[in-house]
Nucleic acid binder design. Structure first.
Lengths: 115, 115
DNA sequence: GAAATGTGCAACTTAATGGTTGCATTTCAC
DNA sequence: GTGAAATGCAACCATTAAGTTGCACATTTC
């Protein structure tokens, strides 16, 4: 089944790479951390306390939205952002595949050494 | 315990961001996929079949090595690379924290609606 | 030892990222 | 309706990233 697992990993690669890349930044990771308690926050709220311009935060939110890690919803004059945990959960599956592949390799090695 | 979970997430952020960023590229993800069956491969082997220069692959491997996702070992004239699954597994923990935070938020919302 | 193999290093190009500032626009509050 | 608040958009700058080419260096192999 090794080939099948590799194929599954490869098939998920493009999408996974986008999500990984979106999370590969401190500021964006902080935004995700802030949003993962389920709160809906405006850009002004999210940039409050951060040592960056509101525009910078806005750009980061767009990156997260492109990766579908976050959804935005207009409410009057403000734009509310909510986390969408699905893509991140999918990464969890990806990671589990990698880990299981590695564990299987370890088992084979162990069996080989012990025989 | 919500504050504690957030704090844990924030503490892991800088390191996690590095690993996420290292995985946020198709080519590097392909390299990880290739190595996660436990094989030790030279740069020449890893760049074989890829539509990139050996140098490009070499640079990508350095990024992965800086993130400690991969280890290299000199063997004569060739440089063998092996996966180190630990940082990736740590990302799994990070993701689980995010998910559990989100689930807790959902539960609170549900309780609020139903009361 | 000469040729071939596997890498490393440096310079360079192009494109993407992260960030800023300034201004226009929509919406709310009084 | 005037002013303040919350955004969006565009232009711009500096840095990093991704990739290439060319060459030098070590290690096999014959």
């Amino acid at each position: 089944m090794a080939a099948s697992a590799q194929a599954r990993l490869a098939r998920r690669s493009p999408r996974a790479a986008t999500v990984f890349a979106a999370l590969g930044d401190r500021t964006r990771l902080a935004l995700v951390t802030r949003l993962c308690d389920g709160s809906r926050c405006s850009i002004a709220q999210l940039s409050d306390g951060q040592p960056l311009t509101r525009q910078a935060i806005s750009k980061h939110l767009r990156v997260l939205e492109d990766a579908q890690i976050v959804r935005s919803e207009r409410a009057g004059r403000e734009n509310l952002y909510v986390l969408n945990p699905q893509p991140i959960a999918d990464l969890g599956n990806y990671i589990e595949l990698v880990s299981s592949q590695w564990d299987a390799a370890l088992s084979r090695l162990k069996a080989f050494v012990e025989e």
